[in-house]
Write a protein that binds this DNA or RNA. Structure first.
Lengths: 338, 338
DNA sequence: TTTATCTAGTAAAGCCGTTTACTAAACCCT
DNA sequence: AGGGTTTAGTAAACGGCTTTACTAGATAAA
């Protein structure tokens, strides 16, 4: 069934040595036309394709990158994976996907598998602050990029969205709609995203104003379940808040479910802004205003970084790149009196 | 950085031959405890992991399966990919993802890449009826499974959801709510899904009744864009229809967008049932009733089939397995008078 | 004519496991 | 003591490609 032809067969058919065929096919040998034609003919006739295992063994590379992320079924990561796959293809590389479900043992396992598979590079995405063991394992790779959330101790270039800008945009938008008391829902306080967004949110809310407005926050993890819990907690503790800034579509999902069950209306009872905008938030009830992450760009750029020639530069691994986010206004923020 | 240890180093360290180490590690050689201990110690000390490229070259297999599907960013396929990845991991295999965007040239390209990569098996998922060229290319694999939609001419076991049952459930539900005139939105008429669902829908609508009720249909492809077009066409041509059975969440998205723009309400103006239920339809406005595909089971079972010992059986490739679907009732079907 | 240069390649080593077929030594039995 | 059986391994071939270092022969230059 599969093509059993190898270099040797082709070489024999063309009447040259395997070296010649190999070098010719890899472009490291100039040949007169007659010889070229014979080899070309043999390759076509025998439908020759180099055995990738042999090739990789010989070259010591795998033409494969690993993408380690929390969950493919999460639309944000799915879009990310799609963008990465597309970009990798154009670099002649394949993509190995590992879902970690945000468990550190699975993160470690995925990293180990990737390392044992001698992948050429790793795109690591997490949702939480991983243990130092994860960073250590990640540092085993000669090429890795840390995406979307920071990994403390990781020696690798970082590619993040501009979380502070995101918080700022949300804050400004809410302020201009009259909101002053806003709750942020997000992952742990140690997360880069949480810290930056809170900072940005505070700046956005304060804006040019004289009084310093500090948002409250409710923290868990980036899952719908956590969204539900945070929503319950929020409802039982809410005092002055009139708006919620939700750190991810997943959290938003949980929040919406709880609110729906309790008959709490958006934006009448609370205004809401989501983060990511990877789901069909425009079809929700109401359409949800959100800060959109540049997910395609994130994926494409991550792959570019992996294949960048700048890895020779020793500083490359300490670089952090920020990609801009944008606010998509829809119907979940209500203008309130003042 | 990476472990540069190889078998030879381990063998030297343990004072035995490479054969011995290899056979011991692969369980094809019994050794006295003292020797075992020496090898174990060497392996640990040197942090030895067999070079997978060498291993694969030697063994002639890749421990990799390819999953070829239309779009990872589509939640249904994303969930499918997640389930497949999980199942593959438990079979010690890796997953190579290829997105085709439903283009036949990309399908062909993905199949060729997979074949050149000597993958151990392929899970092929498409949304349309592919050209015979695709089937031919697919048939090059010694192990492939055709998932979710048929590939005519493909010599491989098929794993589909029970589309007829799905149509039937939708039909019955609509009938019991008083609907008699229903439009099906779906992909091409040549699609297995379209045909079976229409058949099922008709049976469901007719149910025990005496008169034979035939649904109308509006066909395009399974994309939101197509959903929009079909919705427009539907609206310009609608006569008696009171309900729509949409063949996928993607189509539903397009339909909902158009309806929202036109101020057409669901379920007041038209009732709607979606298919797949991979998106958060429960949060849409209104919550959308849907036929749910058993997406996890689909993924798990596909991998099981790939690793099944039954491939020796020559009839195995002509098998078709149907997985049950279920109707999730929500708020998009209105009871109407009669 | 001799030497240098170029053309058109090639031999052989290397990448690293797996597996078949085989052996040396020890042990067992009668 | 002689023969058979275990035990504890091992040598060598194989899988298929890449790459370095080298050569035979032709051509050009001095």
């Amino acid at each position: 069934m599969k093509s059993r032809t190898n270099l040797k067969t082709v070489a024999q058919e063309a009447g040259v040595s395997t070296t010649t065929v190999s070098r010719y096919l890899n472009g490291t040998l100039e040949l007169p036309e007659a010889t070229r034609d014979r080899i070309d003919a043999a390759v076509i006739k025998l439908n020759y394709h180099p055995n990738p295992h042999a090739r990789r063994l010989s070259l010591g590379r795998s033409d494969t990158i690993a993408v380690i992320l929390p969950d493919i079924a999460n639309p944000f990561f799915a879009k990310l994976a799609a963008a990465i796959e597309l970009a990798a293809t154009s670099h002649n590389s394949m993509v190995l996907l590992h879902a970690t479900f945000n468990k550190s043992d699975r993160e470690l396992e995925a990293l180990k598998r990737a390392s044992q598979n001698r992948v050429d590079g790793v795109v690591f995405v997490t949702n939480r602050t991983p243990e130092s063991e994860v960073a250590r394992q990640l540092n085993e790779f000669s090429r890795a990029v840390i995406l979307d959330e920071d990994v403390p101790g990781g020696v690798a270039p970082r590619l993040l969205c501009d979380n502070e800008l995101g918080g700022m945009l949300a804050g400004r938008h809410l302020r201009s709609a009259g909101h002053r008391h806003v709750a942020y829902f997000g992952g742990g306080i140690d997360l880069h995203s949480t810290q930056k967004r809170l900072t940005g949110l505070q700046h956005g809310l304060t804006d040019g104003g004289s009084e310093d407005i500090t948002p409250t926050f409710f923290l868990g993890d980036h899952s719908p379940t956590s969204g539900r819990e945070l929503a319950e907690r929020f409802l039982s503790q809410v005092t002055q808040e009139t708006a919620i800034f939700s750190g991810s579509d997943e959290l938003t999902l949980g929040i919406l479910e709880v609110f729906k069950e309790r008959g709490i209306r958006i934006p009448e009872d609370f205004s809401l802004i989501s983060f990511d905008d990877a789901r069909s938030l425009h079809l929700f009830s109401p359409a949800i205003t959100a800060v959109r992450q540049p997910v395609d760009m994130l994926g494409t750029r991550a792959v570019d970084i992996l294949f960048s020639p700048e890895w020779d530069d020793p500083d490359f691994t300490s670089r952090t790149e920020l990609l801009p986010v944008e606010l998509i206004e829809r119907g979940s923020v209500k203008r309130i009196g003042q």
